[in-house]
Design a protein around this nucleic acid. Structure first.
Lengths: 214, 214
DNA sequence: GTCTTTGATGTTAGTCACTAACATCAAAGT
DNA sequence: ACTTTGATGTTAGTGACTAACATCAAAGAC
């Protein structure tokens, strides 16, 4: 059992192209079936079958049926965006401004897939819990960053939890609306929801208060 | 099938004392077993058995295994507290002040049971989703109240979602701490978390900004 | 080109949350 | 006593997972 390559010691193995293809097929089949017949009415075995694979293989790629819908690796981006805000800002302002920056410009193709998934979540009550379990990961990551900069843990939890809640409200609201309406712009919806927590300064017109500084 | 009593027309039936006893036994057995051997390691059938009843009966009283832990009917209290705040206040301030008022003074016996349950949730990752599914009910109720008063639906969702997130952060933080420490006061923890969103005015010392008014 | 290794997949069998259909029991009213 | 009706039990089934073990297929060693 000799190790023939350093790479094998670093990680168990980088995912093979075969594995990646299977995973992609599962995600595609899941989105398709969920949209056509509903999330609850679709079994994991059925998704696996549509992807030309076994139920067992499905669960080797995704720990739960929900996770096939929610496997975005955006956390590092958010953590970086929040961390980039001045450490002198209060925690809530740092978090809100960080998320604001991160969601300012989203590539159009990303918007499309976010929309499909969020629509499914919005109209499937049993998936709400999954969203929050997913948010928990993100929350932990951002909280760790704030705490590392000296923020009180409770304050950090409250600030990040509240901000992610507002963001989630925006996403669900946006996904639930019809595309036809003119007001269904994702970035704008996110901005409106976040400004409930921290008003923006870079805006024409009067603001309620001086803003976020000490 | 004649109706012999007006009461029978109001509700299918008021829960009999027998039903109430069974329900209480299930809750007690669940809390006990969950604390002793963990939530995940305890099956619904086991809880039912400890309560002297069948698994089927368990699910007749609680739609899911989680709900045996989370059956508090506090929603109307919160809705009333938020509704009681002046309609001229911005939505976030109304919500935060409402929750603040509702959690200001909690009877000591209620604190004890909230603590037991919240501790379980805090140390059981698989229960996090349940908390949010529970919060969703409360969120809907409070949002409806705000929207009825003319608040924009997206703004209402963001405000209420964020506030409940901060409150939940406070509860989890408080339940996770050891009782020994002096700072483990529930009401104070809630106040600290909520003041991240809206600073209080009734406080000595300088505040960052004018507060919540227009 | 064989040989070998190793990760990806299949097979089987089992647990547990939950549901539906039907039978029974016990209390409460007549 | 008789009847009604809600609470409970019984049985059987589905679907989300998990564990143990067997197999297959691609990538490298020779």
């Amino acid at each position: 059992m000799l190790v023939t390559n350093i790479k094998d010691m670093v990680a168990p193995s980088s995912p093979s192209s075969r594995s990646l293809r299977t995973r992609a097929a599962l995600v595609a089949a899941a989105l398709d079936l969920f949209e056509r017949q509903g999330y609850d009415a679709t079994s994991a075995a059925q998704v696996a079958g549509a992807a030309g694979v076994t139920e067992m293989t499905f669960f080797r790629h995704f720990p739960t049926k929900e996770q096939v819908l929610l496997d975005d690796p955006y956390d590092p981006v958010l953590v970086a965006a929040v961390g980039a805000r001045p450490r002198t800002d209060p925690p809530l302002a740092r978090t809100v401004d960080g998320l604001r920056a991160a969601w300012q410009d989203i590539p159009d193709d990303a918007v499309a897939v976010v929309r499909r998934r969020t629509r499914l979540v919005a109209r499937t009550p049993s998936l709400r819990g999954a969203v929050w379990r997913n948010n928990a990961r993100t929350e932990d990551a951002v909280v760790d960053r704030l705490v590392a900069d000296g923020t009180d843990p409770l304050v950090a939890r409250a600030a990040v939890g509240a901000t992610l809640a507002a963001l989630t409200a925006a996403l669900l609201h946006w996904a639930d609306a019809d595309d036809l309406a003119g007001g269904s712009d994702l970035a704008d919806t996110v901005r409106r929801a976040l400004s409930v927590l921290v008003p923006r300064l870079d805006r024409t017109g009067p603001t309620t208060c001086g803003g976020r500084g000490a």
